[in-house]
Amino acid sequence: MWPRVDGMRAMELGAPGSMRDELNALVLVGAKRATTGLLGEYAEEDERLETVGERLALLDNEGAAVAVLEITGVEVKAYDEVTWEHAAAEGEGDADLDAWRDVHRRFWSGEGTPVQGDTLVVCLGFRLTDGPSASSAPE
């Protein structure tokens, strides 16, 4: 099971360390409004998919909540079907969809889960509802 904070499920972006710090910073300034996870991890962790309107606690490297996110979209699709619109909303500076795929493929392979074109992923959209820049985050 994923951590719970103040009654909410938690979201931990990327790998612990500098990657998580960088991704959280992108969320907190409003640049990152989406993320992608492996569907298989939900089964491994005995977790259900997020739902639109659900609020999640965004955690830092120490497990402390740094913001609250509201889920705005949930889609399950094959890795090769992820759209540029979703990839760009991740806000990580990828030049195009091929670059996004390369970065994510390397990350998941490095974590021990190689992905193929038909690997199912969960594409989440979210908005910042409570955090340093929530008042200026796009709705």
Results as ranks from 00 to 15, higher is better:
residue 16 P to H: 09
residue 4 R to C: 04
residue 42 Y to M: 10
residue 96 D to A: 08
residue 63 G to P: 01
residue 28 L to G: 06
residue 26 L to A: 14
residue 113 T to W: 13
residue 73 G to E: 14
residue 115 V to L: 11
residue 133 S to C: 07
residue 11 M to G: 00
residue 119 T to L: 04
residue 22 E to F: 09
residue 68 V to T: 15
residue 12 E to W: 05
residue 62 E to S: 15
residue 39 L to R: 15
residue 50 E to F: 15
residue 102 D to V: 07
residue 9 R to F: 08
residue 48 R to P: 01
residue 68 V to W: 05
residue 80 D to L: 04
residue 79 Y to P: 00
residue 35 T to W: 01
residue 87 A to M: 03
residue 53 G to W: 07
residue 83 T to N: 11
residue 73 G to I: 02
residue 7 G to T: 01
residue 105 R to K: 12
residue 40 G to Y: 05
residue 60 D to Q: 02
residue 5 V to P: 00
residue 132 P to T: 04
residue 18 S to G: 08
residue 83 T to V: 09
residue 114 P to Y: 08
residue 19 M to S: 09
residue 67 A to T: 01
residue 124 L to A: 05
residue 17 G to N: 10
residue 64 A to W: 08
residue 104 H to P: 12
residue 16 P to M: 05
residue 34 A to I: 07
residue 120 L to V: 05
residue 76 V to F: 02
residue 32 K to M: 00
residue 121 V to T: 09
residue 135 S to G: 10
residue 116 Q to C: 06
residue 66 V to N: 06
residue 77 K to E: 14
residue 7 G to V: 00
residue 13 L to I: 03
residue 66 V to W: 03
residue 137 A to N: 09
residue 126 F to H: 05
residue 114 P to Q: 06
residue 17 G to I: 02
residue 61 N to Y: 05
residue 87 A to F: 10
residue 139 E to W: 07
residue 36 T to R: 03
residue 111 E to M: 12
residue 39 L to Y: 13
residue 96 D to V: 03
residue 51 T to L: 09
residue 33 R to V: 09
residue 31 A to W: 09
